[in-house]
């Protein structure tokens, strides 16, 4: 419809063929606070038009990383550039290429949603009329039309986040930084924010987001990097990462010793964790319908009765453990063997 629509299309094309210019590139990025090394040599490249997730637990250094990339914090050493503009040497040039939505919603509580958007439009030098037009578009797109005349103080957490995301789009920046966009939201608001982020993707922007949730990275990102101990310990597509990660466990509970014994014999394998005392078997796998059906069919064919079946997702801790020490979940068995 307008001139700016051409750029997203070009970026979408770049994404489709899997190559594109580097939207964000860092080399050897380091940052310490006193004796605490938060980032210990980070090399990352994010292709234009893709969604990149930096995954890590609380305190991993995600916000520090985002603040360096957005010119707010100088690194101790190393370089970082957004579309070729060095964030330390040419911060003003770098700032033209991105918008930032920080970890805590940066909206003005005493202003209405509409006033927030128009103000940010003006500060992005769209002019009065331009800012109002853009604000109207974004209110509509982020489902905030009804709330536009209300002060943000009265908004729910999810609405605030949506407004925050709308603000990040006001100047149609090529790169959008989102620091923990869903932390602290209830599941329903989280889904609404995911949908809103998916809409950002449609506009062709490059998105750099941070998250503590594996599921979120999986849902939203083309590529995920896991930050742990100041380093990127894994980097790849969500599918690639999950292959190397702890997997879902199907937990089978039995009512009787003989059923447990029969099942243990049927399902024995190197990864199956057996707990004879509580009559529980834990079988790792995809955790999908096919695997569950296979298990149930197998046990039914041998007349083994299960009293209870539950699925447990790997916790992020297990994921980090398996990434930082791939032998970790075998180590208990290994030490047992060594001891005998």
């Amino acid at each position: 419809m307008n001139a700016t629509a051409a750029a997203p299309r070009a970026r979408a094309a770049a994404k489709a063929v899997g190559t594109g210019p580097a939207a964000i590139a860092t080399a050897g990025l380091r940052k310490s606070y006193g004796a605490v090394t938060v980032l210990d040599g980070i090399d990352l490249t994010v292709r234009a038009g893709t969604v990149f997730a930096l995954l890590g637990p609380n305190g991993a250094g995600k916000t520090t990383m985002v603040r360096i990339l957005t010119t707010l914090l100088p690194p101790d050493s190393g370089t970082a550039a957004v579309f070729g503009a060095d964030v330390v040497r040419t911060p003003e040039a770098a700032r033209r290429h991105f918008s930032l939505t920080g970890q805590y919603a940066a909206v003005d509580e005493l202003l209405t949603g509409e006033e927030n958007l128009v103000m940010m439009g003006r500060l992005n030098h769209l002019g009065g009329a331009g800012a109002r037009r853009r604000a109207a578009e974004l209110l509509d797109r982020f489902d905030l039309v009804d709330a536009r005349k209300r002060r943000v103080r009265t908004y729910s957490g999810g609405m605030r986040r949506r407004l925050d995301l709308a603000i990040s789009l006001i100047a149609d920046p090529p790169v959008i930084f989102l620091d923990e966009p869903t932390t602290g939201l209830d599941p329903r608001s989280r889904r609404a924010v995911w949908a809103a982020i998916a809409r950002l993707v449609e506009s062709g922007s490059t998105i750099f987001l941070t998250t503590q949730y594996l599921e979120e990275a999986d849902q939203l990102a083309d590529r995920v990097a896991v930050l742990h101990g100041g380093r990127v310990v894994a980097d790849g597509t969500p599918a690639e990462l999950k292959d190397g990660m702890a997997r879902t466990l199907v937990e089978l509970r039995f009512a009787a010793d003989d059923a447990y014994g029969a099942a243990a014999a049927l399902l024995s394998g190197p990864d199956v964790r057996a707990e004879p005392e509580s009559l529980v078997l834990r079988v790792p796998g995809a955790g999908d319908a096919a695997q569950v059906k296979h298990l149930l069919d197998l046990l039914e064919a041998h007349d083994v009765h299960i009293s209870r079946l539950t699925l447990s997702e790997p916790t992020l801790d297990e994921v980090f453990l398996s990434l930082t020490d791939p032998a970790a979940h075998h180590s208990a068995a290994d030490t047992n063997q060594d001891a005998t």
């Binding site: 700016t4 750029a7 580097a22 090399d43 579309f83 070729g84 503009a85 033209r96 100047a171 090529p174």
Partner: peptide, 18 residues
């Protein structure tokens, strides 16, 4: 590593300030 050395042009340069 090579990606950082060659700076690609930005896809949507902002209009020059009037």
């Amino acid at each position: 590593m090579t990606a950082t050395a060659t700076a690609p042009p930005a896809p949507a340069p902002p209009p020059p300030p009037r």
